[in-house]
Design a protein around this nucleic acid. Structure first.
Lengths: 201, 201
DNA sequence: CACTTATCGTACTGTCCAGTACGGTACAGT
DNA sequence: ACTGTACCGTACTGGACAGTACGATAAGTG
C-alpha cells in the first residue's frame, strides 16, 4: 500500500462524515463526496467496496472518538452525588452534541435495513457506556453508598432518568440546551435517583 | 364530494400506513401503494397533493388513535404508587408497540428535512402525554403526596425514567420486551421515582 | 530509467421514482 | 337519457444515483 493511500482514505472518511452528518446518508451521493475531496469514484470503490462500507468506516471512526469521553473518576474524593452528577452532565452533553445526533439519525434510518450496522453501533457506543455505569454503581454498592439489587436494571433507570426528554427532543430538531441547563438538570436527576420524590410523612 | 371518495381516501391512507411503516417512507413508492389498493395515481395526487401530503395524513391518523390510549384514573382510590405504575406500564407498552416504533423511525428520518412534520407529530403525540402527566403530578402535589417544585422538570424525569433504555433499544431493532417485563420495570421505576436509591444511613 | 500499479477522469448502464399528460370510463344529479 | 365531473390506466418526462468500464496519467519501486 502506498503511504499516500492511508491519507486519502482518511480524507474520504472525513468528508463523508461531514456530508452524511449534514445531509443524511441516503441523501448524500458518492459523486458529491468525490467532488469535495477530489479523486475518482473508482478509487473510493476500491477502498470501501460499496457505499455501505464507507458508512461503516464513518460510524467506526466516530464511535471511536466519542467512546473515550467518559471516564469515571473513581479515585476522586468527591461525594457519590457529585460524581454521578458530573458523569450525568458529561453523558447528557455528549448525547446532545451535533455529531451524536447526526449519527443517531442515520443509524435509526438504516436500522430497518441493516441490523449489523446497528449491532456495531450499539456495541461501540451505548453498550460500552452502559457497562461502565453498571460497574461504577456496583462499586458504590459495595461501599454501602447505595442499595443495589439489580445493577443492570438500575443502570438503565439512571440512564433514562439522565436523558429525560432532552435526547428525544434534540434528535427531533429542538434546540440543543445550554451547558448550564444540562448541568442543572443533571443535578436534579441525580437527586431524584438518590432520594426520590415521596413526602417523608 | 362523492360518498365513495371518503372511503377511497381512507383506504389509501390505510395502505400507505401499512407500507410506510413496514418499509419506510422513502423506500415506498406511490406506485406500490396504488398497486395494492387499486385506483389511479392521478386520483391519489388529487387527494393529497404530493407524497409528503399523504405522509402527513398518515401521521395524523396514527397519532389520533394512539393519543386516546392514556387516561389517568384520577378518581380511583388506588395508591399513588399504583396509579403511577399503571400509567408507566401503559406508556411503556405504547412506546414499544410496533406502530409507534415504525412511526418514530419515519419521523426521525424526515426530521432534518421537515421541521413542520416533526412539530405536528410532537404536538399530537409526546407533548400531549407530557402535559397530562404534568397535570397529574401537580394534583398529587396539592394532595401533599409528593414534593414538587418544578412540575415540568419532574415530569421529564419520570418520563425518561420510565422509558429507561427500552425505547432506544426497540427503535434500534431489539426485541420488544414482554408485558411482564415492562410491568416489572415500571414497578421498579416508580419505586425509584418515589423513594430513590440512597442508603438511609 | 523502465515498469508496475494505484489513481484519475469521464462517460456509461441500469434502475428507480415523483410527478404529469391524456384519452377513456363509470357515476352522480337533473 | 344527458352532461359534467370524478376516476381509471397507461404511458411518459426528467432527474437522481449506485456501481462499472476503460483509457490516460501519475506515483512509487527496482
Amino acid at each position: 500500500m502506498r503511504p499516500s493511500t492511508l491519507k486519502k482514505q482518511q480524507k474520504i472518511i472525513e468528508v463523508a462524515t461531514k456530508l452524511f452528518f449534514e445531509q443524511g446518508y441516503s441523501e448524500t451521493s458518492l459523486d458529491q463526496i468525490i467532488e469535495v475531496c477530489g479523486g475518482s469514484k473508482q478509487t473510493l470503490y476500491s477502498y470501501f467496496g460499496c457505499k455501505r462500507g464507507l458508512l461503516i468506516q464513518v460510524i467506526s471512526c466516530c464511535t471511536e472518538e466519542v467512546g473515550n469521553v467518559f471516564q469515571f473518576d473513581t479515585d476522586s474524593d468527591s461525594s457519590l452525588s457529585e460524581q454521578l452528577t458530573l458523569f450525568g452532565y458529561d453523558y447528557l452533553r455528549a448525547l446532545c452534541s451535533q455529531p451524536i445526533i447526526d449519527m443517531y439519525r442515520i443509524i435509526v434510518a438504516e436500522a430497518r435495513r441493516d441490523k449489523e450496522l446497528v449491532e456495531f453501533f450499539l456495541s461501540r457506543g451505548p453498550h460500552r457506556f452502559y457497562n461502565r455505569l453498571s460497574e461504577f454503581l456496583q462499586s458504590k454498592a459495595q461501599q454501602r453508598k447505595i442499595v443495589l439489587e439489580d445493577p443492570a436494571l438500575t443502570s438503565a433507570q439512571l440512564m433514562g432518568l439522565l436523558r429525560g426528554n432532552y435526547f428525544q427532543d434534540v434528535v427531533l430538531g429542538m434546540d440543543i440546551p445550554s451547558d448550564e441547563e444540562m448541568m442543572r438538570y443533571s443535578v436534579q436527576a441525580v437527586r431524584c435517583f438518590l432520594q426520590g420524590y415521596e413526602t417523608k410523612a
